[in-house]
Design a binder for these strands. Structure first.
Lengths: 146, 146
DNA sequence: ATAAAACCTAAACATAAGTTTAGGTCAAGC
DNA sequence: GCTTGACCTAAACTTATGTTTAGGTTTTAT
């Protein structure tokens, strides 16, 4: 059994965030003793999933829907599978987008690296793409979609 | 020269979002004709960078700071370089975190795939890690950090 | 010349995801 | 038994990032 403070520590959440999650319906089956919440190992698993779904960009109310499906039992297994498949695709897309963002950032790192060396970026502003180092050319082209 | 509507279309932003960015100081040097904003090719580059920095998770006011540095000229080249290096690290960390999130999602896809096949997840709930398929074992272990 | 479409500002409103506050109850150690 | 620390609720507040509204001006096409 864990107190709210112990859960907060384990998952690096504030106590009021956990109370907020409870209020929003993310912890439908929490036991209480004299009004005080008591968490068990099954609840740990719930917090792990909440953390995962949040990190994947899901909103509180969508997570709540998932947890309601869990409560409904076997009849919702398919919905839950579809939800995770869908979320997997979203995460893959986010990773792709971040990798493309990284291209432009890498180009900018090169650009400002050169600029700092030269003390100015005047010469770089009008630099033709083809005079960039080949690796940076690729970054630039990917980032600018050319 | 581009109108605000053309920029909105090009960057898939709403017109009011562009006005909001302007109000927040992200477009310090916009020309106007009879009060109407006029964007040129240099501004396109600014929107590209804004898009990039936003996708990398930077807040409006931090982006504003960067654009102020651009305005200040060569004396801030080093700050700008450091900013991009820092942002690069942040993006790399985000990608890592998403990949770790993906591990748990992959495990859950497998879990619910099995559950749907069986019509129940009763047998899976208490499944020892070592009886999972090897590939899923690794997902599970990475996701649960064991 | 006029109507429609596109632009403008200022200010109010919206939303998600918490955090803070005020006023209380419960439990552990001295 | 009493104090201190950890817990409780309800409700107000916060912050970031826009969006919407109301009322007006400019440009464009006919």
């Amino acid at each position: 059994m864990y107190t709210i403070g112990q859960i907060a520590e384990k998952f690096d959440l504030s106590i009021s965030t956990i109370r907020y999650y409870d209020k929003e319906g993310l912890l439908p089956n929490i036991k209480r003793k004299n009004g005080i919440r008591q968490f068990d190992d099954q609840d740990l698993e719930v917090f792990l999933v909440i953390e995962c779904l949040k990190k994947s960009g899901m909103q509180i109310k969508e997570i709540k829907q998932f947890l309601l499906w869990v409560d409904e039992g076997n009849s919702t297994l398919n919905k839950r599978l579809e939800m995770f498949k869908n979320q997997k695709q979203k995460v893959l897309n986010q990773i792709k987008e971040l990798e493309s963002t990284l291209n432009l950032i890498n180009y900018k790192c090169w650009y400002y690296g050169e600029a700092v060396k030269q003390g100015t970026d005047e010469n770089l502003k009008t630099l033709p793409v083809l005079s960039m180092p080949k690796e940076i050319q690729n970054y630039y082209k990917k980032a600018h979609k050319i």
